[in-house]
Amino acid sequence: MTQPFDDSQRLLDSVKQAVAQKRQLSILGHGTKAHYARSTHGDALQSRDHVGVIEYQPDELTISVRAGTPLTVIAETLDQHNQMLACDPPRFFGGGTIGGAVASGLSGPGRPWYGNLRDAVLGVEMINGLGERLTFGGSVMKNVAGFDISRMMVGSLGVFGVILSVNLRVHPKPEIERTISLDLNWDDAWSVLCETIAKPTAVTATCYWSGSLYLRLAGNRASVEEACSSFPSNTEIENDVWVHLRDHEHSFFQSSEELRRTWLGRGLQPQIENDESNLIEWAGAQVWSFKVHGDSAALGQRISSEPFNRSSAAPSTESKYMRRLRRAFDPHQLFNSDLLL
């Protein structure tokens, strides 16, 4: 399944054929994020066979991969050189491709400290709605030639075209990682969270749930030990908790109710009850909750609060430009045409 294979010609032919026959396409990788955003209009265009690491240069901190490459394969490849994809995109159901990760733009619990996938993208190769194979960006860290189309692809849900390959910046893994848990009420936890943004600390992920604050501390041994000792009465727990949170396998996420995601501005304390109904990540900037717990306005001043399901998202305020932008890439509305922006 993970043998490198260049399926780009078939993908290109399929798009050209769709243009000629005026048919629509829904782009599909592993399909692990169907609950988040899944197009059902048109013929399925499978990118999962377009697989493989095209080039990996550990000492340049760059990797170039085909869109169908599983996230697990990328992680294993990077691990051989003690490197990682810092933004740590979710692997729901243990799967997912890099193309799907780029299209959905989701980030793991380390987002405020390690950046998101957009920050890591250096270049893309894509097929637009005219059936043209285009390359934007490159494989170098700094590149300001032309508009930054490659980073715009992150989170675009495939509406601009089919991603063929992605060049990414990678990060060295920290020497050690440790996770501690602190029993704190929400106000005290909030003070700790503010410090993780305003002060140089070893913290690289946070989560507050059910009266406990989890902190991931990373760096060299001396600085992580120093950081651990600065939190009195902490309990060390397994690092796995971050994988469970990232992939929504943590017990909090086990509910049949509708999952909501709320984003807040940095430094704004979410107003929550001290109960199990909210799980707070990203130093307070991302709050998960279930519809059953009612009015999310209680969360305070927020950027957005919506179901974790982009398929039904309302058009954004910049929708006039969004429609034009979509037409600029996909004049025949070929790709994922039922997904709104």
């Binding site: 957009r118 930054d148 980073r151 715009m152």
Partner: peptide, 17 residues
Amino acid sequence: GNGYESSGIELIPLFVG
């Protein structure tokens, strides 16, 4: 805005540069 992410397509990369 002043958060890490915002709803919808990210146009910031288009305007920066």
